[in-house]
Design a protein around this nucleic acid. Structure first.
Length: 491
RNA sequence: GGUCUCUUGGCCGAGUGGCUAGGCAACGGUCUGCAAAACCGUGUACGGCGGUUCGAAUCCGCCAGAGACCUCCA
Protein backbone atom coordinates (compact mmCIF):
# COMPACT_ATOMS: atom_id res chain seq x y z
CA UNK A 1 0.00 0.00 0.00
CA UNK A 2 2.76 2.42 -0.84
CA UNK A 3 0.53 4.42 -3.17
CA UNK A 4 -0.85 7.68 -1.84
CA UNK A 5 -4.38 8.07 -3.12
CA UNK A 6 -5.76 11.58 -3.33
CA UNK A 7 -9.49 12.04 -3.79
CA UNK A 8 -11.65 15.10 -4.26
CA UNK A 9 -13.96 15.57 -1.33
CA UNK A 10 -17.13 17.43 -2.29
CA UNK A 11 -17.55 18.49 1.33
CA UNK A 12 -14.27 20.40 1.52
CA UNK A 13 -14.10 21.15 -2.22
CA UNK A 14 -10.50 20.06 -2.11
CA UNK A 15 -8.39 17.11 -3.06
CA UNK A 16 -7.46 15.26 0.11
CA UNK A 17 -5.17 12.39 0.93
CA UNK A 18 -7.34 9.34 1.46
CA UNK A 19 -6.79 7.75 4.85
CA UNK A 20 -9.40 5.26 5.97
CA UNK A 21 -10.86 5.35 9.43
CA UNK A 22 -9.47 1.91 10.16
CA UNK A 23 -6.10 1.32 8.51
CA UNK A 24 -6.34 -1.27 5.79
CA UNK A 25 -10.14 -1.26 5.67
CA UNK A 26 -12.47 0.89 3.61
CA UNK A 27 -16.22 1.29 3.92
CA UNK A 28 -17.92 2.83 0.93
CA UNK A 29 -21.54 3.46 0.12
CA UNK A 30 -22.89 4.48 -3.28
CA UNK A 31 -26.43 5.49 -4.14
CA UNK A 32 -27.79 2.91 -6.52
CA UNK A 33 -30.72 3.07 -8.89
CA UNK A 34 -34.39 3.51 -8.28
CA UNK A 35 -35.68 0.48 -10.09
CA UNK A 36 -38.71 1.73 -11.94
CA UNK A 37 -37.30 1.58 -15.46
CA UNK A 38 -34.50 0.15 -17.51
CA UNK A 39 -31.05 1.45 -16.69
CA UNK A 40 -29.85 4.16 -19.05
CA UNK A 41 -26.44 5.51 -19.98
CA UNK A 42 -26.53 7.86 -17.02
CA UNK A 43 -26.77 4.96 -14.59
CA UNK A 44 -23.56 3.57 -16.02
CA UNK A 45 -21.56 6.62 -14.96
CA UNK A 46 -21.61 6.25 -11.16
CA UNK A 47 -21.53 2.49 -11.50
CA UNK A 48 -18.35 2.67 -13.57
CA UNK A 49 -16.82 5.51 -11.54
CA UNK A 50 -17.20 3.72 -8.25
CA UNK A 51 -16.33 0.37 -9.75
CA UNK A 52 -13.04 1.98 -10.72
CA UNK A 53 -12.58 3.25 -7.18
CA UNK A 54 -13.55 -0.13 -5.72
CA UNK A 55 -11.16 -1.97 -8.02
CA UNK A 56 -8.34 0.45 -7.36
CA UNK A 57 -8.75 0.30 -3.59
CA UNK A 58 -8.73 -3.49 -3.74
CA UNK A 59 -5.69 -3.36 -6.03
CA UNK A 60 -3.89 -1.18 -3.47
CA UNK A 61 -4.51 -3.86 -0.89
CA UNK A 62 -7.42 -2.45 1.06
CA UNK A 63 -10.13 -4.70 2.31
CA UNK A 64 -13.22 -2.93 1.01
CA UNK A 65 -16.84 -3.29 1.96
CA UNK A 66 -18.75 -1.73 -0.89
CA UNK A 67 -22.47 -1.16 -0.36
CA UNK A 68 -24.69 -0.04 -3.21
CA UNK A 69 -28.40 0.05 -2.59
CA UNK A 70 -31.40 -0.73 -4.70
CA UNK A 71 -34.17 1.79 -4.11
CA UNK A 72 -37.46 0.02 -4.47
CA UNK A 73 -39.71 2.09 -2.26
CA UNK A 74 -40.44 5.59 -1.16
CA UNK A 75 -39.47 7.94 -3.94
CA UNK A 76 -42.41 10.18 -4.55
CA UNK A 77 -43.66 11.14 -7.92
CA UNK A 78 -43.49 14.84 -8.85
CA UNK A 79 -46.17 16.15 -6.51
CA UNK A 80 -45.18 15.44 -2.98
CA UNK A 81 -48.72 15.60 -1.71
CA UNK A 82 -50.07 12.75 -3.80
CA UNK A 83 -48.31 10.21 -1.69
CA UNK A 84 -48.00 7.91 -4.62
CA UNK A 85 -44.61 6.50 -5.22
CA UNK A 86 -42.86 5.76 -8.44
CA UNK A 87 -42.94 2.04 -8.04
CA UNK A 88 -46.64 1.91 -7.30
CA UNK A 89 -47.45 4.18 -10.17
CA UNK A 90 -45.54 2.03 -12.60
CA UNK A 91 -47.18 -1.06 -11.22
CA UNK A 92 -50.58 0.40 -11.91
CA UNK A 93 -49.62 1.17 -15.48
CA UNK A 94 -48.19 -2.22 -16.16
CA UNK A 95 -50.69 -4.12 -13.99
CA UNK A 96 -47.96 -5.84 -12.08
CA UNK A 97 -47.26 -6.38 -8.43
CA UNK A 98 -44.95 -3.63 -7.19
CA UNK A 99 -42.38 -6.22 -6.24
CA UNK A 100 -42.66 -7.69 -9.70
CA UNK A 101 -41.78 -4.35 -11.23
CA UNK A 102 -38.93 -3.94 -8.82
CA UNK A 103 -37.60 -7.40 -9.55
CA UNK A 104 -37.81 -6.92 -13.29
CA UNK A 105 -35.82 -3.72 -13.32
CA UNK A 106 -33.42 -4.90 -10.67
CA UNK A 107 -32.62 -7.87 -12.86
CA UNK A 108 -32.19 -5.60 -15.83
CA UNK A 109 -29.87 -3.30 -13.88
CA UNK A 110 -27.76 -6.11 -12.56
CA UNK A 111 -27.53 -7.70 -15.96
CA UNK A 112 -26.46 -4.42 -17.56
CA UNK A 113 -23.87 -3.90 -14.85
CA UNK A 114 -22.50 -7.35 -15.43
CA UNK A 115 -22.23 -6.63 -19.15
CA UNK A 116 -20.23 -3.52 -18.33
CA UNK A 117 -17.91 -5.71 -16.24
CA UNK A 118 -18.86 -3.85 -13.08
CA UNK A 119 -18.03 -5.95 -10.05
CA UNK A 120 -21.01 -6.66 -7.83
CA UNK A 121 -20.83 -4.68 -4.61
CA UNK A 122 -20.15 -6.50 -1.36
CA UNK A 123 -23.72 -5.83 -0.23
CA UNK A 124 -26.62 -4.68 -2.41
CA UNK A 125 -29.37 -3.93 0.08
CA UNK A 126 -32.93 -3.10 -0.86
CA UNK A 127 -34.87 -0.34 0.81
CA UNK A 128 -37.93 -2.57 1.06
CA UNK A 129 -35.89 -5.10 3.00
CA UNK A 130 -34.91 -2.53 5.61
CA UNK A 131 -38.21 -1.05 6.71
CA UNK A 132 -37.54 -2.00 10.32
CA UNK A 133 -34.17 -0.27 10.30
CA UNK A 134 -35.73 2.80 8.77
CA UNK A 135 -38.47 2.90 11.39
CA UNK A 136 -35.76 2.64 14.05
CA UNK A 137 -33.93 5.54 12.44
CA UNK A 138 -37.11 7.61 12.48
CA UNK A 139 -37.49 6.87 16.19
CA UNK A 140 -33.94 7.97 16.87
CA UNK A 141 -34.46 11.23 15.01
CA UNK A 142 -37.71 11.84 16.90
CA UNK A 143 -35.87 11.20 20.17
CA UNK A 144 -33.18 13.69 19.30
CA UNK A 145 -35.89 16.29 18.76
CA UNK A 146 -35.21 17.03 15.13
CA UNK A 147 -38.39 15.53 13.80
CA UNK A 148 -42.09 15.87 14.53
CA UNK A 149 -45.18 13.85 13.84
CA UNK A 150 -47.98 15.35 11.87
CA UNK A 151 -51.15 13.50 10.85
CA UNK A 152 -49.45 10.12 10.73
CA UNK A 153 -46.37 11.34 8.90
CA UNK A 154 -43.05 12.26 10.43
CA UNK A 155 -41.08 15.23 9.14
CA UNK A 156 -37.50 16.26 9.62
CA UNK A 157 -37.32 19.73 11.17
CA UNK A 158 -34.72 21.36 8.94
CA UNK A 159 -34.88 24.83 10.46
CA UNK A 160 -34.42 23.57 13.99
CA UNK A 161 -31.59 21.31 12.91
CA UNK A 162 -29.91 24.16 11.03
CA UNK A 163 -30.05 26.43 14.09
CA UNK A 164 -28.14 23.92 16.19
CA UNK A 165 -26.00 22.17 13.58
CA UNK A 166 -24.28 22.84 10.34
CA UNK A 167 -26.70 22.39 7.46
CA UNK A 168 -26.02 22.95 3.77
CA UNK A 169 -22.23 22.56 3.85
CA UNK A 170 -22.15 19.92 1.14
CA UNK A 171 -24.26 21.81 -1.35
CA UNK A 172 -23.20 25.28 -0.27
CA UNK A 173 -26.72 26.29 0.59
CA UNK A 174 -28.03 28.55 3.30
CA UNK A 175 -31.37 28.06 4.96
CA UNK A 176 -32.38 31.69 4.40
CA UNK A 177 -31.67 31.45 0.69
CA UNK A 178 -33.56 28.20 0.47
CA UNK A 179 -36.54 29.71 2.24
CA UNK A 180 -36.63 32.73 -0.03
CA UNK A 181 -36.57 30.43 -3.04
CA UNK A 182 -39.20 28.03 -1.96
CA UNK A 183 -42.20 27.56 -4.12
CA UNK A 184 -45.54 27.23 -2.44
CA UNK A 185 -46.83 23.77 -3.08
CA UNK A 186 -50.32 22.62 -2.34
CA UNK A 187 -50.94 20.21 0.47
CA UNK A 188 -47.90 21.08 2.52
CA UNK A 189 -49.78 22.31 5.53
CA UNK A 190 -48.67 19.22 7.46
CA UNK A 191 -45.15 20.59 7.43
CA UNK A 192 -43.93 23.35 9.67
CA UNK A 193 -41.54 24.61 7.03
CA UNK A 194 -41.36 24.01 3.31
CA UNK A 195 -37.78 22.85 3.81
CA UNK A 196 -38.87 19.96 5.98
CA UNK A 197 -38.94 16.55 4.38
CA UNK A 198 -40.81 13.39 5.26
CA UNK A 199 -38.95 10.60 6.96
CA UNK A 200 -42.13 8.59 7.36
CA UNK A 201 -45.14 9.15 5.15
CA UNK A 202 -48.67 8.01 5.84
CA UNK A 203 -50.03 6.04 2.91
CA UNK A 204 -53.18 7.22 1.19
CA UNK A 205 -55.99 4.65 1.07
CA UNK A 206 -55.20 3.40 -2.44
CA UNK A 207 -51.51 3.19 -1.91
CA UNK A 208 -50.24 -0.37 -2.25
CA UNK A 209 -46.73 -0.15 -0.88
CA UNK A 210 -47.29 0.24 2.83
CA UNK A 211 -45.95 -1.02 6.11
CA UNK A 212 -47.17 -0.68 9.66
CA UNK A 213 -45.35 1.72 11.94
CA UNK A 214 -46.00 3.51 15.26
CA UNK A 215 -47.27 6.54 13.35
CA UNK A 216 -49.35 5.13 10.52
CA UNK A 217 -49.50 2.52 7.82
CA UNK A 218 -47.14 4.07 5.35
CA UNK A 219 -43.70 4.04 3.90
CA UNK A 220 -40.31 5.52 4.71
CA UNK A 221 -39.18 8.91 3.47
CA UNK A 222 -37.16 9.08 0.33
CA UNK A 223 -33.80 9.98 1.82
CA UNK A 224 -33.95 7.72 4.80
CA UNK A 225 -33.01 4.39 3.30
CA UNK A 226 -29.41 5.42 2.62
CA UNK A 227 -28.97 6.63 6.17
CA UNK A 228 -30.47 3.49 7.66
CA UNK A 229 -28.63 1.04 5.42
CA UNK A 230 -25.24 2.75 5.42
CA UNK A 231 -25.35 2.91 9.21
CA UNK A 232 -26.35 -0.73 9.44
CA UNK A 233 -23.62 -2.09 7.20
CA UNK A 234 -20.81 0.45 7.51
CA UNK A 235 -21.30 1.96 10.93
CA UNK A 236 -22.24 5.39 12.18
CA UNK A 237 -19.17 6.89 10.56
CA UNK A 238 -17.65 5.48 7.41
CA UNK A 239 -15.13 6.45 4.78
CA UNK A 240 -16.61 7.13 1.37
CA UNK A 241 -20.06 8.00 0.14
CA UNK A 242 -20.57 8.34 -3.59
CA UNK A 243 -23.27 9.16 -6.06
CA UNK A 244 -24.27 11.42 -8.90
CA UNK A 245 -23.67 15.14 -8.57
CA UNK A 246 -27.42 15.69 -8.92
CA UNK A 247 -27.96 13.95 -5.61
CA UNK A 248 -25.97 16.49 -3.62
CA UNK A 249 -29.10 18.46 -2.94
CA UNK A 250 -31.37 17.57 -1.43
CA UNK A 251 -30.64 13.86 -1.09
CA UNK A 252 -27.15 13.86 0.38
CA UNK A 253 -27.71 16.99 2.39
CA UNK A 254 -30.71 15.26 3.93
CA UNK A 255 -28.65 12.17 4.65
CA UNK A 256 -26.02 14.22 6.44
CA UNK A 257 -28.68 15.87 8.59
CA UNK A 258 -30.51 12.62 9.32
CA UNK A 259 -27.38 10.76 10.33
CA UNK A 260 -26.23 13.56 12.55
CA UNK A 261 -29.67 13.78 14.12
CA UNK A 262 -29.94 10.03 14.59
CA UNK A 263 -26.41 9.20 15.68
CA UNK A 264 -25.09 12.49 16.96
CA UNK A 265 -22.01 12.57 14.75
CA UNK A 266 -21.02 13.15 11.14
CA UNK A 267 -21.47 10.01 9.08
CA UNK A 268 -19.29 10.39 6.02
CA UNK A 269 -15.62 11.32 5.79
CA UNK A 270 -15.20 11.64 2.01
CA UNK A 271 -18.03 12.60 -0.30
CA UNK A 272 -17.46 11.82 -3.96
CA UNK A 273 -19.71 12.77 -6.87
CA UNK A 274 -19.58 11.85 -10.50
CA UNK A 275 -20.73 14.34 -13.11
CA UNK A 276 -23.51 13.87 -15.65
CA UNK A 277 -23.68 12.51 -19.16
CA UNK A 278 -25.00 15.01 -21.67
CA UNK A 279 -26.73 14.42 -24.95
CA UNK A 280 -26.42 17.31 -27.36
CA UNK A 281 -25.25 19.41 -24.45
CA UNK A 282 -28.30 18.58 -22.33
CA UNK A 283 -28.30 16.42 -19.28
CA UNK A 284 -29.48 12.91 -20.04
CA UNK A 285 -32.22 12.03 -17.64
CA UNK A 286 -35.25 9.90 -17.34
CA UNK A 287 -37.46 12.82 -16.48
CA UNK A 288 -36.10 14.77 -19.46
CA UNK A 289 -37.17 12.02 -21.80
CA UNK A 290 -33.82 11.91 -23.56
CA UNK A 291 -32.34 8.91 -21.83
CA UNK A 292 -31.07 6.08 -23.99
CA UNK A 293 -31.17 2.77 -22.18
CA UNK A 294 -28.16 0.55 -21.92
CA UNK A 295 -30.06 -2.21 -23.67
CA UNK A 296 -30.56 0.16 -26.57
CA UNK A 297 -26.86 0.95 -26.65
CA UNK A 298 -25.94 -2.70 -26.66
CA UNK A 299 -28.31 -3.47 -29.52
CA UNK A 300 -28.25 -0.17 -31.39
CA UNK A 301 -32.02 0.05 -31.23
CA UNK A 302 -32.55 3.76 -30.69
CA UNK A 303 -33.11 6.35 -33.43
CA UNK A 304 -30.21 8.46 -32.19
CA UNK A 305 -27.74 5.59 -32.39
CA UNK A 306 -25.97 4.94 -35.66
CA UNK A 307 -25.03 1.45 -34.53
CA UNK A 308 -24.78 -0.84 -31.55
CA UNK A 309 -22.07 -0.08 -29.02
CA UNK A 310 -20.58 -2.83 -26.95
CA UNK A 311 -20.46 -2.57 -23.17
CA UNK A 312 -16.69 -2.27 -23.23
CA UNK A 313 -16.90 0.60 -25.70
CA UNK A 314 -19.16 2.41 -23.28
CA UNK A 315 -16.88 1.65 -20.37
CA UNK A 316 -13.86 2.90 -22.30
CA UNK A 317 -15.75 5.98 -23.45
CA UNK A 318 -16.55 6.89 -19.87
CA UNK A 319 -13.11 6.18 -18.48
CA UNK A 320 -11.56 8.37 -21.15
CA UNK A 321 -13.17 11.31 -19.39
CA UNK A 322 -12.57 12.26 -15.78
CA UNK A 323 -15.47 11.30 -13.54
CA UNK A 324 -15.97 14.88 -12.34
CA UNK A 325 -16.39 16.30 -15.85
CA UNK A 326 -19.54 16.23 -17.85
CA UNK A 327 -19.24 13.87 -20.76
CA UNK A 328 -21.03 14.62 -23.97
CA UNK A 329 -22.40 11.68 -25.87
CA UNK A 330 -22.13 11.57 -29.64
CA UNK A 331 -21.97 8.74 -32.12
CA UNK A 332 -18.67 10.08 -33.38
CA UNK A 333 -17.10 10.08 -29.92
CA UNK A 334 -18.34 6.60 -29.17
CA UNK A 335 -17.00 5.25 -32.45
CA UNK A 336 -13.66 6.88 -31.73
CA UNK A 337 -13.66 5.15 -28.37
CA UNK A 338 -14.49 1.84 -30.01
CA UNK A 339 -11.48 2.08 -32.31
CA UNK A 340 -9.18 3.27 -29.57
CA UNK A 341 -10.15 0.39 -27.32
CA UNK A 342 -9.60 -2.08 -30.15
CA UNK A 343 -6.08 -0.75 -30.61
CA UNK A 344 -5.38 -1.03 -26.90
CA UNK A 345 -6.68 -4.59 -26.73
CA UNK A 346 -4.74 -5.57 -29.80
CA UNK A 347 -1.55 -4.42 -28.12
CA UNK A 348 -2.39 -6.68 -25.18
CA UNK A 349 -2.33 -9.56 -27.65
CA UNK A 350 0.91 -8.39 -29.24
CA UNK A 351 2.44 -8.22 -25.78
CA UNK A 352 2.34 -12.02 -25.59
CA UNK A 353 4.46 -12.49 -28.69
CA UNK A 354 7.21 -9.92 -28.12
CA UNK A 355 10.74 -10.94 -28.94
CA UNK A 356 13.08 -10.79 -25.98
CA UNK A 357 16.42 -9.08 -26.40
CA UNK A 358 19.55 -8.90 -24.28
CA UNK A 359 19.16 -5.25 -23.57
CA UNK A 360 16.18 -3.02 -23.09
CA UNK A 361 15.73 0.36 -24.76
CA UNK A 362 12.42 1.19 -23.15
CA UNK A 363 11.52 2.60 -19.73
CA UNK A 364 8.80 0.41 -18.28
CA UNK A 365 9.20 1.45 -14.66
CA UNK A 366 8.70 5.09 -15.61
CA UNK A 367 5.55 4.29 -17.52
CA UNK A 368 4.15 2.27 -14.68
CA UNK A 369 4.89 5.05 -12.23
CA UNK A 370 3.04 7.56 -14.41
CA UNK A 371 -0.01 5.33 -14.56
CA UNK A 372 -0.13 5.01 -10.79
CA UNK A 373 0.44 8.73 -10.38
CA UNK A 374 -2.57 9.38 -12.60
CA UNK A 375 -4.79 7.01 -10.64
CA UNK A 376 -3.61 8.43 -7.35
CA UNK A 377 -4.59 11.90 -8.49
CA UNK A 378 -8.32 11.58 -7.91
CA UNK A 379 -8.72 8.57 -10.19
CA UNK A 380 -7.54 10.31 -13.33
CA UNK A 381 -8.35 7.46 -15.65
CA UNK A 382 -8.02 9.55 -18.86
CA UNK A 383 -4.40 10.30 -18.01
CA UNK A 384 -3.76 6.70 -17.06
CA UNK A 385 -5.24 5.59 -20.37
CA UNK A 386 -3.10 8.15 -22.22
CA UNK A 387 -0.03 6.58 -20.66
CA UNK A 388 -1.25 3.12 -21.53
CA UNK A 389 -1.33 4.27 -25.15
CA UNK A 390 2.33 5.24 -24.76
CA UNK A 391 2.68 1.62 -23.72
CA UNK A 392 0.89 0.57 -26.89
CA UNK A 393 3.40 2.51 -28.93
CA UNK A 394 6.24 0.87 -27.03
CA UNK A 395 4.79 -2.58 -27.56
CA UNK A 396 4.28 -2.01 -31.27
CA UNK A 397 7.73 -0.52 -31.67
CA UNK A 398 9.30 -3.54 -30.01
CA UNK A 399 7.23 -5.74 -32.26
CA UNK A 400 8.52 -3.81 -35.26
CA UNK A 401 12.10 -4.08 -34.05
CA UNK A 402 12.49 -0.36 -33.52
CA UNK A 403 12.85 -0.84 -29.77
CA UNK A 404 14.12 -3.71 -27.68
CA UNK A 405 13.09 -5.20 -24.38
CA UNK A 406 14.78 -7.70 -22.09
CA UNK A 407 13.23 -10.53 -20.15
CA UNK A 408 12.77 -8.63 -16.90
CA UNK A 409 11.36 -5.59 -18.65
CA UNK A 410 8.94 -7.72 -20.60
CA UNK A 411 7.66 -9.44 -17.48
CA UNK A 412 7.16 -6.10 -15.78
CA UNK A 413 5.39 -4.68 -18.81
CA UNK A 414 3.08 -7.67 -19.06
CA UNK A 415 2.15 -7.71 -15.44
CA UNK A 416 1.52 -4.01 -15.01
CA UNK A 417 -0.13 -3.49 -18.39
CA UNK A 418 -2.56 -6.29 -17.83
CA UNK A 419 -3.29 -5.42 -14.25
CA UNK A 420 -4.14 -1.88 -15.27
CA UNK A 421 -6.29 -2.82 -18.21
CA UNK A 422 -8.12 -5.79 -16.74
CA UNK A 423 -8.01 -5.45 -12.95
CA UNK A 424 -8.11 -1.70 -12.41
CA UNK A 425 -9.82 -0.22 -15.45
CA UNK A 426 -11.94 -3.34 -15.69
CA UNK A 427 -11.87 -3.97 -19.42
CA UNK A 428 -12.34 -7.42 -20.77
CA UNK A 429 -11.80 -9.05 -24.09
CA UNK A 430 -15.11 -9.13 -25.91
CA UNK A 431 -15.97 -12.00 -28.12
CA UNK A 432 -17.50 -11.06 -31.37
CA UNK A 433 -21.12 -12.03 -31.50
CA UNK A 434 -21.73 -14.92 -33.85
CA UNK A 435 -25.08 -13.58 -34.88
CA UNK A 436 -25.36 -13.81 -38.64
CA UNK A 437 -22.28 -16.00 -38.68
CA UNK A 438 -24.20 -18.75 -40.37
CA UNK A 439 -25.41 -16.42 -43.05
CA UNK A 440 -21.93 -15.10 -43.71
CA UNK A 441 -20.53 -18.62 -43.85
CA UNK A 442 -23.18 -19.58 -46.31
CA UNK A 443 -22.40 -16.58 -48.48
CA UNK A 444 -18.71 -17.43 -48.45
CA UNK A 445 -19.25 -21.02 -49.53
CA UNK A 446 -21.56 -19.84 -52.29
CA UNK A 447 -18.89 -17.39 -53.36
CA UNK A 448 -16.26 -20.13 -53.57
CA UNK A 449 -18.54 -22.45 -55.47
CA UNK A 450 -19.44 -19.72 -57.91
CA UNK A 451 -15.73 -19.19 -58.48
CA UNK A 452 -15.55 -22.92 -59.12
CA UNK A 453 -18.23 -22.65 -61.76
CA UNK A 454 -16.22 -19.94 -63.46
CA UNK A 455 -13.14 -22.10 -63.31
CA UNK A 456 -15.06 -25.01 -64.80
CA UNK A 457 -16.32 -22.76 -67.58
CA UNK A 458 -12.70 -21.89 -68.31
CA UNK A 459 -11.80 -25.57 -68.16
CA UNK A 460 -9.46 -24.66 -65.30
CA UNK A 461 -9.95 -28.08 -63.73
CA UNK A 462 -7.05 -27.65 -61.32
CA UNK A 463 -8.65 -24.66 -59.60
CA UNK A 464 -12.11 -26.20 -59.73
CA UNK A 465 -10.96 -29.42 -58.12
CA UNK A 466 -8.91 -27.61 -55.56
CA UNK A 467 -11.90 -25.64 -54.36
CA UNK A 468 -14.04 -28.76 -54.06
CA UNK A 469 -11.32 -30.87 -52.43
CA UNK A 470 -10.40 -28.21 -49.90
CA UNK A 471 -14.04 -27.68 -48.98
CA UNK A 472 -14.44 -31.42 -48.58
CA UNK A 473 -11.45 -31.49 -46.28
CA UNK A 474 -13.09 -28.78 -44.17
CA UNK A 475 -16.16 -30.97 -43.77
CA UNK A 476 -18.40 -29.78 -46.57
CA UNK A 477 -20.17 -32.04 -48.99
CA UNK A 478 -20.21 -30.51 -52.45
CA UNK A 479 -22.43 -31.82 -55.21
CA UNK A 480 -22.60 -30.55 -58.75
CA UNK A 481 -26.05 -30.17 -60.17
CA UNK A 482 -27.38 -29.53 -63.63
CA UNK A 483 -27.65 -25.82 -63.14
CA UNK A 484 -25.14 -25.19 -60.40
CA UNK A 485 -24.30 -26.76 -57.10
CA UNK A 486 -25.55 -27.91 -53.77
CA UNK A 487 -23.62 -28.12 -50.58
CA UNK A 488 -24.08 -28.90 -46.97
CA UNK A 489 -21.99 -28.95 -43.89
CA UNK A 490 -21.52 -32.50 -42.61
CA UNK A 491 -21.56 -33.29 -38.87
C1' G B 1 -34.58 35.03 -9.67
C1' G B 2 -30.69 32.66 -6.22
C1' U B 3 -26.24 29.44 -5.94
C1' C B 4 -22.48 27.13 -8.70
C1' U B 5 -19.76 25.33 -12.93
C1' C B 6 -18.01 25.23 -17.77
C1' U B 7 -16.10 27.41 -22.80
C1' U B 8 -9.25 23.68 -25.21
C1' G B 9 -7.11 22.04 -32.38
C1' G B 10 -12.07 18.76 -37.48
C1' C B 11 -14.55 15.62 -33.19
C1' C B 12 -14.10 13.64 -28.02
C1' G B 13 -11.36 14.86 -24.06
C1' A B 14 -6.72 15.77 -20.16
C1' G B 15 -3.92 19.65 -18.13
C1' U B 16 -3.75 24.38 -15.23
C1' G B 17 1.51 30.27 -14.38
C1' G B 18 7.18 28.54 -18.22
C1' C B 19 8.64 21.51 -19.68
C1' U B 20 2.82 22.87 -24.53
C1' A B 21 -1.73 14.53 -22.59
C1' G B 22 -4.20 10.82 -25.19
C1' G B 23 -7.94 8.73 -28.54
C1' C B 24 -10.58 9.30 -33.25
C1' A B 25 -10.34 11.78 -37.91
C1' A B 26 -6.83 14.04 -41.48
C1' C B 27 -2.11 14.04 -43.78
C1' G B 28 2.85 11.73 -44.81
C1' G B 29 5.62 7.18 -44.70
C1' U B 30 6.57 1.63 -44.24
C1' C B 31 4.53 -2.79 -46.03
C1' U B 32 1.76 -4.77 -50.37
C1' G B 33 1.39 -6.85 -57.73
C1' C B 34 -2.79 -3.17 -56.69
C1' A B 35 -6.06 -2.13 -52.79
C1' A B 36 -7.55 -2.74 -47.81
C1' A B 37 -5.78 -3.67 -43.06
C1' A B 38 -1.80 -3.03 -39.83
C1' C B 39 2.28 -0.29 -38.06
C1' C B 40 5.35 4.28 -37.64
C1' G B 41 5.39 9.55 -37.91
C1' U B 42 3.18 14.70 -38.21
C1' G B 43 -0.63 18.68 -35.33
C1' U B 44 1.47 24.63 -30.84
C1' A B 45 -5.46 24.66 -29.82
C1' C B 46 -7.11 26.85 -25.28
C1' G B 47 -14.71 31.97 -26.16
C1' G B 48 -13.92 37.77 -26.57
C1' C B 49 -11.76 42.22 -24.32
C1' G B 50 -8.79 44.25 -20.57
C1' G B 51 -5.43 43.57 -16.23
C1' U B 52 -1.47 41.14 -12.90
C1' U B 53 3.37 38.89 -14.26
C1' C B 54 9.89 38.50 -16.96
C1' G B 55 6.18 34.99 -18.79
C1' A B 56 -1.09 33.11 -18.74
C1' A B 57 -4.79 28.51 -22.02
C1' U B 58 -3.67 28.38 -16.60
C1' C B 59 -4.47 34.09 -11.80
C1' C B 60 -8.01 38.71 -11.57
C1' G B 61 -12.04 41.77 -13.80
C1' C B 62 -15.71 42.61 -17.42
C1' C B 63 -18.51 40.75 -21.65
C1' A B 64 -20.63 36.75 -24.59
C1' G B 65 -22.31 31.76 -24.85
C1' A B 66 -23.53 27.00 -22.57
C1' G B 67 -24.84 23.98 -18.56
C1' A B 68 -26.04 22.19 -13.47
C1' C B 69 -28.65 22.61 -8.80
C1' C B 70 -32.71 25.13 -6.30
C1' U B 71 -38.44 19.42 -7.54
C1' C B 72 -37.99 13.12 -8.73
C1' C B 73 -33.25 12.33 -11.07
C1' A B 74 -27.13 8.71 -11.78
Amino acid sequence: MEQKLIIYNTLSRKKELFEPLNPGYVGMYVCGPTVYGNAHLGHARPAITFDLLFRYLVHLGFKVRYVRNITDVGHLVADADEGEDKIAKKAELEKLEPMEVVQKYTNNYQWNMQMLNILPPSIEPRASGHIIEQIETVKKILNSGYAYESKGSVYFDVEKFARENEYGALSGRKVDDLLSNTRELEGQEEKRSPLDFAIWKKAQPGHIMRWPSPWSDGFPGWHLECTAMSTKYLGETFDIHGGGIDLIFPHHEAEIAQSKAANGKPSVRYWMHNNMITLNGQKMGKSLGNAISLNEFFTGSHPLLEKAYSPMTIRFFMLQAHYRSTLDFTNEALQAAEKGLARLMKAVGTLETLKISEKSTVDIAGLKEKCYAAMNDDLNSPIAIAHLFDGVRIINSINDGAEKINEAGCQELKSFFKSFIFDILGFKQEERKDEGGQEILSNIVDLLLNLRIEAKANKDWGTADKIRDELTKLGFEVKDTKDGFEWKLKK
